[in-house]
Amino acid sequence: MAREKTAVRDKKITWKEIKRQKFLLIVAFFVTVYGFIFYYWPLTGWLMAFQDYKPAKGLLHSQFVGLEKFRFLFGDPEFLRVIRNTFCMGVLNLVTTTVMAILFAVLLNEIRSSIAKKTVQTISYLPHFLSWIIVTGILHDALSSTGIINDVLLRLGIIDQSINFFAHPKYFWPIVAFANCWKETGWNAIIYLAAITAIDPSLYEAASIDGANRLQKIRYITLPGIKPTIMILLLMNIGNVLNAGFEVQYLLGNGLVQSVSRTIDIYVLNWGISQNDFSLGTAAGIFKSAVSIALIVICNQVAKRAGEERLF
């Protein structure tokens, strides 16, 4: 971040320099126009949240209603439930996927045979490359009344009648968390494995001489060694907690579990696209963005206080 230093040099905007940088400037111009259209222009649509937006009248002529849409949102028990669902599933997913990825990375690192290590790792990436459509599809098969889970539970005598996992709200959040772990554990572990490789091997040697066993080495060398990576990834992901609630919930949810399955994104989709209430959908979207940005800023501050690496 040597911004000051370069800024001084950048001040010299001469015709000669502009001519020299013609190619760069042309590219920058087109990409910026593109960015304005596709990323910044939609922000003007936020006005809709404060209007009773009618597509026929457009943004300029629709009637302003102030905060009425937001008042409606927070008076809607459905919206409050949707916030709870999004938040709880987001946190549950973040915690379980992080713990699984760290566990997997640490344990994989303990495998001595490099062929076995390579094979397990290659297999572990596989689900990441499958779409959520495929993942939810095969998960649905595994959990169906004739699927493997019921099969195993029946054989072990844990249950005496197959469970319809998708009919009971209490199973939904764990299923979503499991789906996320199944899909992303191997992938998320990549960064932790890279961090483990960067740990100084002499630390392990010294610990061996001191008579530390493998669990102690994990506890006192590996985990502290990857702590900064864990922290920064957690921080990056906390801002995304509310963004992580669409595909699985949309694909696996059904009428029986919708009290726990619907998330903010699904709410926006329902109101905005299916019911054509663009104003209400946008208001819900703004709420989500605002909370996300607040979370990112708070995390960044917390990180700064704690002396950890910051995001920006």
Binding site: T32, G35, I37, F38, Y39, Y40, W41, P42, L43, T44, G45, W46, M48, P55, G239, D265, V268, L269, G272, I273, F278, G281, T282, G285, I286, K288, S289, S292, I293, I296, F312
Partner: peptide, 18 residues
């Protein structure tokens, strides 16, 4: 200009209308 787009976006409906 581009880093901002990672954190702020219009959301589903304004994008759909665009």
């Amino acid at each position: 200009f581009w880093v901002i787009t990672m954190y702020v976006n219009g959301g589903l409906i304004p994008v759909f209308l665009l």
